[in-house]
Computed example of a mutant assay.
Amino acid sequence: MATLYQLHSAMDTLRRSTKEIALTWRAGDSILLLGTTVAFIDWLEAYLDESEIRGVGGIYALADDVAQLAASTTAELNLNAKLTRILTDEEWVKMTQDPQFDKVVTIAL
């Protein structure tokens, strides 16, 4: 079984949020970036590298949140290469109910 971490974090709390996730992380867990957190994906990757977090099952973002970014920002971040998938709201709800996840944890610091 795996955990889906829903991460909603400002840039100034992202490192702390990543440390919170690391406390209960298991290989195969996944992260869903909520709100503006998707804009900080490069920083998230750096914090994941310096943490105890290994074996990420997937990193996802919501289509509505990605759409809020400027097209140039989206291209510069190269989200298609860094995200496992961009989800619609309906897909997000289905994911939270997927039996592969025994827990859905929201981190919003």
Results as ranks from 00 to 15, higher is better:
Leu77Ala: 03
Leu48Ala: 11
Lys94Arg: 14
Ala70Met: 02
Glu76Asn: 06
Lys82Val: 09
Ala70Ile: 00
Val66His: 00
Lys82Pro: 03
Gly55Ala: 12
Glu52Ser: 15
Gly58Cys: 11
Glu52Tyr: 09
Ile59Phe: 08
Lys94Val: 02
Thr74Ala: 15
Asp64Pro: 06
Ala70Lys: 07
Gly55Tyr: 14
Asn78Trp: 06
Glu52Trp: 13
Gly55Glu: 10
Val93Tyr: 00
Ile59Met: 11
Leu79Arg: 04
Met95Ser: 11
Ile59Lys: 07
Val56Gln: 01
Leu77Cys: 05
Ala81Pro: 01
Lys94Asp: 12
Lys94Gln: 15
Val66Arg: 00
Ala75Ile: 09
Thr88Val: 07
Asp49Glu: 15
Lys94Glu: 13
Arg54Tyr: 08
Ala63Met: 05
Gly58Ala: 13
Glu50Phe: 05
Leu48Lys: 04
Asn80Ala: 14
Met95Leu: 15
Ser51Arg: 02
Thr96Leu: 08
Asn80Glu: 13
Thr84Lys: 10
Asp64Thr: 14
Lys82Cys: 08
Thr84Met: 06
Tyr60Thr: 00
Gly57Tyr: 09
Leu69His: 01
Leu69Pro: 03
Ile59Tyr: 10
Asp89Thr: 10
Asn78Ile: 08
Leu83Asn: 05
Ile86Gly: 02
Glu76Phe: 05
Ala67Met: 03
Ala61Leu: 04
Asn78Met: 12
Leu69Arg: 01
Ala63Thr: 06
Gly55Thr: 12
Ile86Met: 10
Gly55Val: 14
Ile53Arg: 04
Thr74Phe: 05
Gly57Val: 09
Ala70Gln: 05
Arg85Gly: 04
Leu48Trp: 12
Val56Arg: 03
Ala70Arg: 07
Ala61Gly: 04
Thr88Cys: 02
Thr74Arg: 15
Leu48Tyr: 09
Ala63Leu: 04
Ala61Gln: 02
Leu77Gln: 07
Leu87Phe: 00
Arg85Asn: 09
Leu83Thr: 05
Asp89Ile: 13
Tyr60Gln: 03
Gly58His: 11
Ser51Cys: 06
Gly57Phe: 14
Gln68Leu: 12
Ile53Leu: 07
Leu62Met: 12
Asn80Trp: 05
Val56Ala: 03
Glu76Gly: 04
Leu87Tyr: 01
Tyr60Phe: 13
Val56Phe: 06
Leu83Tyr: 05
Tyr60Trp: 09
Gln68Trp: 02
Ala71Glu: 06
Thr88His: 05
Glu76Cys: 04
Met95Asp: 12
Asn78Thr: 12
Thr74Met: 09
Asn78Val: 06
Ile53Cys: 08
Glu50Tyr: 10
Thr96Met: 12
Lys94Leu: 13
Ala81Asn: 07
Leu83Met: 11
Val66Met: 00
